[in-house]
Computed example of a mutant assay.
Amino acid sequence: MSFLNKLKNKAEELNRKHNIGLPLGQGSQQQTHPSSQQYYPGQQPPQGQWQQPPQGQWQQPSQGQWQQPQQGQWHQPTQPNTYNRPAVPPPIPSHSRPPPSDAASHTQQSGAPPAQPQASQVYWRANFHPDIPVGQEFEQKQGHGDPYGWGNNELENYTSHASNSLFTPDHKLIVRAVSQPQHPDPEARYTSARLVTRRTLGRARGCLTAWLTLPCAEGVWPAFWMLPREPFEWPHEGEVDIAEAWNAEFQNHSCLHWGAYNSPEDMQKHLVRQTHIPDMGHRAVRFDFVWDCGTSGVRADGKSNGGGRLMWIIDGRPVMKNLMPPGTRPIEDWCVLLNVAMGGTVCQGKAPRDGIYDMVVHALQMSEEPEGGWWKFENDWHGCPHGAVM
């Protein structure tokens, strides 16, 4: 055998031994495909080979697939939707502006600008200046229990003392419930405040807005609600509950009442929607109540014909709507109430522990129209759910 033939045979022997150039599945050892080779993270594969990126990591799309739009094409809008912004109280006029509140500061740090309704839209704003008495803006109801008409077997004694309602140096209203069950004076064991605005809504259409931080604890029942101007017949002339929560359940109850509980027909006159707000005790939640009763009219007995539209909104989101029931008091005659109750049937017999429970009212105002205008109200009306029978 010639030298060249020996060399050729030797090469064929080496090919068979190392499977070089043989198809997969042939020979004594299977070839390793380049794409299945393992590399340490960050290690560059040999030139010309390709490595599958680990699951969940990004890879460059193939030509013809999505790519970054060129300048002038679509891009992510930089201005957030106005009605998804976090709730922030409106600014106080510069001549009496306090330091920013914790809630407002936190929201501004998140990059969302505060809501700033035009001055012409706000026709009334409660004055929380610390140099005036609370009684100048609100009637301070007083009394303890059912003889005064509070109902529900509640524990609190409502007072006009500064220990239960006050304006703070940074222009907030505090509605304070104080629980001290061991106090020797029964009238001092559970004290609180029940405030009623000295003015009514006064208009056939408008928007009532409050920014509230609500106390959350067992046996505590804060409320922001409305009743007709006194004297009135409850509940037939109506009741609207805008912010109402109890027993630290973090559920807000938006309600409309206009009947007793004595018959099946009466049960249809109590409507409610619940909204879960898990952080209601730690920030200013925005509550809006919008009414549009301009065409409903008034009956000969001075009661409403009904038919006006009502909507409850929380942090810019409509949560409940209903028509104004006939026989209720015209909406112009309604007042606003703020109070913190304790115990009673609503709290399922639970009493609060020793302590102080504050409802912080950051701002309270009435406007000619809701934020976004009446066109937005019309749009929201169609998608908002009606109140459900309790």
Rank of each mutant, 00 (worst) to 15 (best):
Leu7Ala: 15
Lys17Ala: 12
Lys17Ile: 02
Gly27Thr: 03
Gln30His: 11
Gln30Thr: 09
Gln30Glu: 15
Pro34Trp: 15
Ser36Asn: 11
Gln38Met: 11
Tyr39Met: 02
Gly48Ser: 04
Gln49Phe: 11
Gln55Asp: 13
Gln55Leu: 14
Gly56Asp: 08
Trp58Asn: 03
Pro61Cys: 09
Pro61Asp: 08
Gln65Thr: 10
Pro80Met: 06
Asn84Thr: 13
Ala87Lys: 07
Pro90Asp: 13
Pro93Met: 02
Pro93Val: 00
Pro100Tyr: 10
Ala104Pro: 00
Gln108Thr: 06
Ser110Glu: 05
Ser110Met: 09
Ser110Thr: 12
Phe138His: 02
Glu139Ala: 00
Gly151Ala: 11
Asn153His: 12
Asn153Lys: 09
Asn153Thr: 09
Leu155Phe: 10
Leu155Gly: 05
Thr159Pro: 05
His161Met: 10
Ala162Gly: 13
Val175Tyr: 06
Val175Gln: 02
Pro181Tyr: 08
Thr191Asp: 03
Ala193Leu: 06
Leu195Gly: 02
Leu195Asn: 01
Gly202Gln: 07
Arg205Val: 01
Cys207Ile: 02
Cys207Pro: 00
Leu208Asn: 02
Leu214Asp: 00
Glu218Lys: 15
Trp221Glu: 03
Trp221Gly: 02
Ala223Ser: 14
Pro235Asn: 05
Ala243Leu: 09
Glu249Trp: 13
Leu256Asp: 04
Trp258Lys: 00
Asp266Ala: 09
Met267Lys: 12
Gln268Phe: 01
Pro278Phe: 06
Arg286Thr: 01
Thr295Glu: 15
Ala300Lys: 15
Ile313Leu: 07
Val319Thr: 11
Leu323Tyr: 12
Pro325Trp: 01
Pro325His: 02
Pro325Asn: 04
Ile331Thr: 03
Cys335Gln: 14
Val336Arg: 03
Gln348Val: 09
Met359Pro: 03
Met366Tyr: 07
Glu368Leu: 12
Trp375Asp: 15
Asp380Tyr: 02
Asp380Val: 00
Gly383Ile: 07
Cys384Pro: 01
Cys384Gly: 03
